[in-house]
Amino acid sequence: MWWKGLWRMITSGSYRAFYAMLLRLYPQPFLERFGEGMGQTFHDLCREHTDAGRGVFGLALWMFGETLLGIIKENASHMTAELGKIAQRAALGALAVWMVPVVAAQFTEGWHWGLGGFAFVYVLFFSSVRL
C-alpha cells in the first residue's frame, strides 16, 4: 500500500524524499524551474536544525504545510492562466467561424444584418460561452 511506504518514509526521517514527492504537485513549469532549489533549501534547513541538535520533525511539518499552501496558490494561478489562454483561443476560433456568415451576408440577398449586428451577436455568443 502506498500509504504504508509513505508512513515508513516519514517515520524513518527521509524527509527530503517525502518533500520531493510533495514538490511534484507543483505545476510542471514551476517544478522544472525551482524544484531542485526548493529541495536543496529544504535539506539545508533540516541540516541546520540537526547540526544545532534540534529535532527536525516540527520544522519539516511546518515546511510541508507552508509548501502545500504554495502548491495550492501556484496551481490556482497556473489554472487561471491556462483558462485565459483557452478562452483567448476559443474567442479567435469563434471569430474565424463567424467570418463565414459575415462574408456570406455580403453576397446573399435578403440578409439584413450589418457588420454591427454580427459584432453584437458575436459578443453575445462569446459572453454566453464564457459564462
Binding site: 526548493m38 534547513l45 496558490k73
Partner: peptide
C-alpha cells in the same frame, strides 16, 4: 542562493520573518 536568501531575511528582520520554501520560491 535560496537558503542564503532565507538566512539573510531572517538576519535582516532579527528573526521576526521566517520564510518557508513555498513562500520564498513562489
Amino acid at each position: 542562493h535560496g537558503y542564503g536568501i532565507m538566512k539573510q531575511v531572517e538576519a535582516d528582520s532579527q528573526g521576526k520573518v521566517n520564510m518557508g520554501p513555498g513562500t520564498l520560491y513562489g
